[in-house]
Design a binder for these strands. Structure first.
Length: 937
RNA sequence: GCGGGGGUGUCAGAGCCAGGUCAAAUGAGCAGGACUGAGGCUCCUGUGCCUUUAGUGGCUGCGAGGGUUCAAAUCCCUUCCCCCGCACCA
């Protein structure tokens, strides 16, 4: 069986028969599902396949359940990553070239052509689409679009008009990481090493120079609460400082900062400059305590960090303490101040910084260990530190920080500045990333209270898979506030209220599912004529069809068909993505639906899945263990990849893709295929079904029941265990038990193929033909289980046979002789009665009392006492279901042939009372329900 | 810090919501055997410790410590550890 060949063969058939190109059908239930569309700035690997395969398995299942299923796909090209990637190719960035060559094996002659964004998108999107087709995804490709298509741009502009109309678009100022060289905002993919620049607020405190009234030394700090412990100020004598004017006040900051500061404070003017060393020995005033503080030189002060000026809190900041110690032996030694405590910290004395420095053996301010010491002390003090300053006594560090910051700012003793806190971060162009306050930035106001309430309502009506993701959504809804929605650069859609800006990528991908419903129909239209009235009509049913159609340059009938298509497919029944999008995309997706569409069109379900691991570890460039999807398909075949990726773990957990697993899948698949081959050729019905046949049927229908139920929560792993692995095991037992009914086998295999079809559709199509199935298995009906075929007693009977076999084997091993004859004695009815009593009462005295109330049991009071004692020992393990003595006896009799074959000896089965011979009788008396007594001669 | 998830046998991973059929599914690994020219293929058996030349026995055990219960991997409390997210970025 060649999985690769089978794949191609059936993909061709599906395409020819247009098997997955649904049209609205009056009266037929629909099911519309989408997965987050791919971003084609590189090829896809098996990790990407997880979400799509999950979606496809679901789509195929729902199709078999008789619904009209729409599963479309498009490409997301919005934003800067595509541009950044093309630029890196153009610059022949060795890292990128290596990934393309070595991992994705992009042909050498193709790579140089990817230096242009459009070509890059074309190439990779084709690559991705090919991979999806080769995976056999049941996607309706007629509806494919790119987010930079004109028609889609028109749609997104309409979306933003709607948001504006609701008052959800607002304007404000916003700090962003910025490359001063390229004059653009940067994201992680724009930086060296893909570092995500983290921006945080710093409090810039004004320390007035004693000798220069009106001029301040500006100290930026993350710990304003320590203002009470400042003993001096630090400057770097090696660098230059500039005097800048902001709002009428004059401040000294490092010249490096003076350069980038206008990005945050455009009104800033530079009015002077001097060397850092000129400040040494001067005095400044603490704005809060009024203390007079000296200015000392320190080499740890970096020109680009904060303001290039540092306030010294030796009690709590290891660097400050170390720098003071470093002054020993200089002319400043006599002036070295004593630390002043601000916070008390459990496990530490008055001066935690001093202690930690001594404990960790940090030598001086240039010792790399100083950083670790700082981190430890800062985090401890912030979270568990308590203020000792009288005014704030007992307050937690974090709370004091907020309060003191506010007090200083409102008293104009400090300013708020922003800085990159995980710096230095470098742009790919080589410039150091700084912070820019973008003025008049546009935001989507996800903080809007009423909007949030609607979103909460939407979620309360939505099905979430797995359900345990719900708190994450709730949390996200809670903290969401204004989100910047435009950028200066990038592909996508221009912003309707500022044509110089582009709509940012997380904002143009929130309601595109609606676009799919008409994407194929819009394809032939003039995109210039797609105005708001058009979209209002199609998606909201507003306006006059005739007028709208005329404006749009189409017939009224065409227009109405679009509206009808939308109404047929919407709402979205299921949305799929990896779990990492819960905190942004998936929540935005609901927000925007709620804002724009009426309640009946709000989404119904979101399913999120985990990632794919490669041989136990995360796929990463550095590990070089990325498995490109198309390579995996070539190597294993689509069905094997599909099956492995979605059944390796339950939905929310990461799934491991490994060689051993694929081998196991292939082996079982081939085994099953072999059975199909064998039994499809075998002649029809052979006589009456035996007990073991009924057992197999029971197992089959139970599987069908479990699988059907498990699909509700997309428990694909559970289904695979039940349908795939356990089928193989059941069939092995069936054959071992000398089962061989061809009719039953065909029935089993047929249903098995149907249940496997969503997972491994290509192989199943192939097997379906062999089994004489009609049409495509992809369009066949999902098997309905028959509750009547599920037989507890058949399964229990088989269990007794199996356990008895194991027991016999145990005994044989123990006595080490070849059996001549095997006698099995089934327990009598009264024991079963007693068993039930014991299980119910759970206590010896109560059970005994109840037993004595029964005349049959009372008659054998002595035996009852003995057996009950025995039963009580394991009262917890007594089971609910039990065979009657007739059932157990006949199960064992039925299996006589099997036992005889297993142990190559004569077999006798009887009730315990029928035992002949003293030794036999004694043994037989030990029989208990579901546990026949065994005697071996 | 805030929010979420999780700690199970050699490993991966079920079970936990609805306590008992749990020495704990399933798979992998490992060991032994069968088949074979040979096997990394396939099949069978075993795989916590102890006991037992007749099975349905004992002990330990599901991060750690306590508790509830006739009974706890499952419920409650305390505690330690790990992973993920905290945005303007797809």
């Amino acid at each position: 069986m060649n999985f690769q060949e089978i794949g191609e063969k059936w993909q061709k058939r599906w395409a020819e028969e247009k098997a997955f190109e649904p049209e609205p059908e009056e009266g037929k239930r629909k099911f519309f599902l989408t997965a987050a569309f791919p971003y084609p700035n590189s090829p896809q690997h098996i990790g990407h396949a997880r979400t799509y395969t999950t979606t496809d398995v679901y789509a195929r299942y729902m199709r078999m359940r008789g619904t009209n299923v729409l599963f479309p796909m498009g490409f997301h090209v919005t934003g800067t990553p595509v541009l950044a990637m093309a630029k890196r190719v153009a610059a022949k960035d060795p890292e990128i070239l290596e990934i393309f060559e070595k991992i994705y094996r992009v042909p050498a002659d193709v790579i140089p052509t990817l230096d242009e964004p459009k070509r890059l998108v074309d190439y990779f999107s084709r690559e991705i689409e090919m991979g999806m087709r080769e995976m056999g995804f049941s996607i309706d490709w007629r509806r494919k679009f790119y987010t930079y298509d004109k028609a889609f741009n028109a749609f997104i502009r309409w979306q933003f008009e709607k948001l504006k109309g609701k008052g959800y678009l607002v304007k404000g100022n916003h700090p962003v990481p910025w490359c001063p060289n390229e004059d653009n905002a940067v994201g992680a993919h724009d930086t060296k090493g893909d570092v995500d620049p983290n921006i945080d607020q710093m409090t810039a405190i004004k320390f007035e120079l004693k000798d220069e009234p009106g001029n301040y030394l500006l100290c930026a700090t993350f710990r304003p609460e320590t203002i009470y412990g400042v003993t001096n100020a630090w400057i770097n004598p090696q660098i230059k400082y500039s005097l800048v004017e902001i709002g009428g006040s004059k401040y000294w900051v490092s010249s490096a900062v003076a350069k980038s500061l206008p990005l945050q404070i455009p009104s800033m003017r530079k009015i002077g400059e001097r060397n850092g060393s000129e400040f040494e020995g001067k005095k400044v005033l603490n704005p809060v305590t009024g203390d007079e503080l000296p200015i000392f030189p320190a080499s740890f002060v970096q020109p680009e960090v904060g303001t290039g000026v540092v306030m010294s809190v030796p009690a709590h900041a290891p660097y400050d303490y170390l720098a003071l110690m470093d002054l020993k032996g200089t002319k400043w030694e006599p002036m070295i101040p004593e630390p002043k405590q601000v916070l008390e910290l459990e496990g530490f004395g008055e001066f935690p910084a001093k202690e930690i420095v001594e404990r960790m053996g940090v030598k001086n301010q240039n010792d790399p260990k100083a950083e670790a010491a700082t981190e430890e002390i800062y985090s401890k003090e912030a979270h568990t530190g308590k203020m000792v300053i009288e005014k704030y006594a007992g307050m937690r560090g974090v709370d004091a920080k907020e309060r003191i910051k506010e007090e200083m700012v409102s008293a104009k003793k400090a300013l708020m500045l922003h800085d990159v806190i995980n710096g230095p971060v470098w742009c790919r162009c080589g410039a150091r990333i700084c912070v820019k306050i973008v003025a008049d930035q546009w935001f989507i106001d996800y903080g809007n209270k009423e909007w949030k309430d609607d979103v909460k309502e939407a979620f309360s009506r939505m099905n979430l898979i797995p359900e345990k993701t719900r708190p994450e959504y709730e949390y996200t809804i809670g903290w969401l506030k204004e989100k910047a929605c435009v950028r200066a650069q990038g592909l996508g859609t221009t912003f309707p209220y500022d044509e110089t800006k582009m709509i940012e990528s997380l904002s143009d991908s929130t309601i595109y599912m609606a676009f799919y419903t008409v994407a194929d129909l819009i394809g032939g239209m003039d995109p210039e004529r797609l105005n708001s009235q058009f979209f209002d009509f199609v998606f909201l049913g507003k306006g006059d069809a005739g007028a709208v159609a005329e404006e749009a340059g189409i017939s009224e009938k065409e227009l109405r068909a679009m509206r009808a298509s939308f109404l047929y497919w919407y709402p979205l029944d299921s949305r799929h993505s990896a779990g990492d999008l819960i905190h942004n995309h998936l929540t935005f997706f609901v927000f925007n639906h709620v804002a724009i569409f009426p309640k009946e069109h709000w989404p119904r379900q979101i399913a999120t899945n985990g990632f794919v691991l490669m041989e136990g570890s995360k796929m990463s460039k550095s590990l070089g263990n990325i498995m490109p999807l198309r390579e995996a398909i070539r190597k294993y075949g689509a069905d094997i990849v599909r099956f492995s990726v979605v059944t390796g773990a339950e939905l929310d957990a990461d799934s491991d893709f490994n060689e051993a697993m694929t081998e196991g899948v292939v082996a079982r698949m081939k085994w099953m295929a072999g059975l199909v081959e064998e039994y499809s050729a075998k002649e029809g019905s052979e006589g009456k079904a035996k007990a073991i046949d009924l057992w197999l049927l029971s197992k089959l229908h139970r599987k069908m029941k479990i699988a059907t139920k498990a699909f509700e929560k997309l428990a694909l792993r559970e289904i695979s265990q039940e349908v795939f692995y356990s089928s193989v095991n059941d069939l092995r037992w069936y054959f071992k038990r000398t089962g061989s009914n061809a009719k039953i086998m065909r029935d089993f295999l047929r249903n098995w193929v149907l249940m496997m079809a969503p997972f491994t559709p290509h192989t199943c199509e192939e097997l379906w033909v062999k089994l004489g199935g009609e049409g495509l298995v992809s369009q066949a009906k999902w098997p309905e289980f028959d509750e009547g075929k599920i037989s507890e007693s058949a399964e229990l009977a088989e269990e007794v046979v199996g356990k008895t076999r194991d027991d016999v084997e145990n005994i044989l091993k123990l006595i080490g002789k070849k059996p001549a004859k095997l006698c099995l004695y089934a327990a009598e009815g009264w024991k079963r009665k007693l068993y039930s009593i014991a299980r119910e009462e759970k206590r010896f005295d109560l059970a005994m009392k109840k037993a004595m109330a029964d005349s049959e049991l009372k008659a054998r009071a002595k035996d009852v006492g003995r057996v009950l004692q025995q039963l009580m020992k394991d009262v917890g393990t007594l089971r609910r279901l039990m065979l009657t003595e007739e059932q157990e006896l006949s199960a064992l009799r039925d299996a006589k042939e099997f036992f005889a074959q297993e142990f190559s000896c004569e077999v006798e089965v009887m009730m315990e009372g029928e035992a002949v011979g003293d030794a036999q009788k004694k043994k037989a008396a030990n029989a208990s329900p579901m546990k026949p007594s065994i005697f071996i001669e």
